[in-house]
Design a protein around this nucleic acid. Sequence first.
DNA 1: ACGTTTTTGTACCGAACAGTTCAGAAAGAG
DNA 2: CTCTTTCTGAACTGTTCGGTACAAAAACGT
Lengths: 192, 192
Amino acid sequence: MARHKEFDEQQALDQAVETFWSGTYASTSTQDLCESTGLSRSSLYNAFSCKADLYQRSLRRYGELKDAERTAYLEHPGTGREALEALLGHVLETQGGSEDRRGCMVINAAVEIGGDDDEVASLTRASLDGFRGVVAQLIARGQDDGSIATTAPAAELATVVHAALNGLQVGARVATDPAAAGRGLQTLMSLL
Amino acid sequence: MARHKEFDEQQALDQAVETFWSGTYASTSTQDLCESTGLSRSSLYNAFSCKADLYQRSLRRYGELKDAERTAYLEHPGTGREALEALLGHVLETQGGSEDRRGCMVINAAVEIGGDDDEVASLTRASLDGFRGVVAQLIARGQDDGSIATTAPAAELATVVHAALNGLQVGARVATDPAAAGRGLQTLMSLL
DNA sequence: ACGTTTTTGTACCGAACAGTTCAGAAAGAG
DNA sequence: CTCTTTCTGAACTGTTCGGTACAAAAACGT
């Protein structure tokens, strides 16, 4: 006795992710979101309560997508070192590359929102910790198979590797040489 | 035959730095800038042409201040390793610490503005490169005095160290444990 | 003291913003 | 066909924004 929804909410959310990711929370207007999702104003506000809520859901969705991408590398063949290098290279190519300078949406959120919004802070923290955890697992695997030195515990090495990767991504946003991040990665791997 | 300026433009600029640094470009209103500098709207726009210009000058001023802070560490006594550790520790304490979570204004600018504004991108690039250069010099000194391994050229190591430092600062913006960055620094130093 | 020049406070402008309202269109069930 | 319910487009609201206009006030040189 009722009409169906005519749009796919998940699909709209994915478009919102793209839109927020390409800019900042502040620079993304609700108008932009309407255009990218193809929804009218009322539909957008009917499906998602407000801009802040949509952003939060977008950030969570982004985290889920990226988390799936990362954890897939736990199954990557070869040594732990090889798997780790593949993962880090993939991240730099897709997020720090020359094609789009969007960087990582979680890092962008951490810098833009920071601790101003508890929910966003918690989401970004969880996402960063998740990534660090995957890096730690790969390093531990590398230490087991002998491809990575055991000079320091895997968890501590992971903190540094993860931080370096994030730092390289930030630098890539304004860098002139798109290959610089890749060279940084090579040096980073040589330290392990 | 004319009236003097009643306020110190440099002092006002320094206050603007503080204000922009504490937030984002978008979240800082001209009203905020008036209040923090103590200037009225007309005086502000008379001294600085527009918000974007004031931001640019603030960013440049911030870069100069931080550059002076950093280069002072080139005179730091002890080995290159000790000087480097002192510099990195100082940065984490003042910018990634628990007191204020403002992080580094240049990193914030790189993430928020990114490549959208050529002038800002150029400024941030110069500032990041400057920091990286100081790190490279300290590492080279450490390699000379034997306190840092020569497994890789100083310039390449500096890229990684600098990136890791920046990554730690980003993480500190949302971290719950304020000491985590410090531990990351210890591990980073142990890799050199 | 006076005229000149700059500073400064206030009021104002148009634009863009997030969010709401509401009438009508569309689609199901009987 | 018709009633009901949901969805959708468009117009609207109140606020905040960056920036401007202008007149009064303040301080200098003479």
